[in-house]
Computed example of a mutant assay.
Amino acid sequence: MLRTIRFAPFAAVALLAAAPAMAADSPVVGTWATEAVTDFGTFKSTLTVAEAADGYQVDIKDVPLEGAPPAPPSPPGSISDVVVDGSNFSFKRKLTTPQGEMQFSYTGTVDGDKLTAEVDTGQFGKIPVTGVRQ
C-alpha cells in the first residue's frame, strides 16, 4: 500500500507532462503556409489550427497581394463550424469584400507536412488550396 501511495504523485506528474503530447495527436494541428491559385491571381495565407476548450479553432492571416495594403485581421466569429477528424478538417469562413459578404466552406486533409483542401466559394465555384507545414 505504501508503494502505491509513493507512486501516485509520479503517475500524476507523468499524466500532466503527457497532456500536451496528447493534444497534438491530430496531424491537422499546426501552422500552414497555404496557396490558392485562381483566375484572379494566387492568394497566400497562413492557416493555424489549434485545439480549443470545446474542440478546435482556426485562424487565417491573409498575405496581401503585391502592392496592396496589409489585410485586416479576421474579425471574431468569422470562422465557424470547425471540425477536425483525424487528418480531415472542415470549417466555414465569412469574408466581407467590396462585392459584399461571402461565405466560404473549406474541406481538406493533411498527409504529413502537406495540406490539400478545397474552398467552395458558392458563386465562383471550388478553388483548390495547397499548403505546407511551417
Rank of each mutant, 00 (worst) to 15 (best):
S74T: 13
D111N: 04
F7A: 15
P9S: 02
V58L: 04
Y106W: 11
A12H: 07
R6H: 03
V129Q: 07
K114R: 05
M102K: 14
A50I: 02
V13Q: 12
K114W: 01
I5Y: 07
F43Q: 05
T31M: 08
T46F: 02
A33E: 15
L16T: 13
I127P: 01
S45V: 10
A21S: 14
G55W: 11
L115N: 00
F43C: 01
G55T: 15
T4M: 06
T116R: 09
T96W: 02
A18N: 06
P75Y: 03
D85L: 04
A53W: 06
T31W: 05
K92P: 03
T34V: 13
V63P: 03
P98M: 15
A18M: 14
W32H: 07
S78Y: 02
V119L: 05
G55M: 15
E101P: 09
Q99R: 09
V84H: 02
Y56F: 13
F89W: 00
T97W: 00
I79A: 08
D120W: 00
T121M: 10
V119C: 15
M102G: 05
P9Q: 05
V58R: 01
Q103K: 14
R93L: 06
D85K: 11
A52P: 02
E35A: 10
V119A: 06
G131W: 03
F43L: 07
T96Q: 14
A117I: 08
L2N: 10
A24V: 14
A53E: 14
G67C: 04
G108N: 01
F124G: 12
G112W: 03
A19C: 09
F10K: 04
Q103W: 07
E35K: 02
T34M: 13
I79L: 14
T116L: 03
S26M: 01
A71W: 04
L115W: 01
V84G: 00
V84R: 00
A68N: 07
I127T: 06
A12Q: 10
F40M: 15
S45L: 06
F91W: 08
P20E: 10
K61V: 12
G86C: 00
D54W: 00
M102R: 05
I127V: 15
P128I: 12
Q99F: 10
V110G: 01
A18P: 00
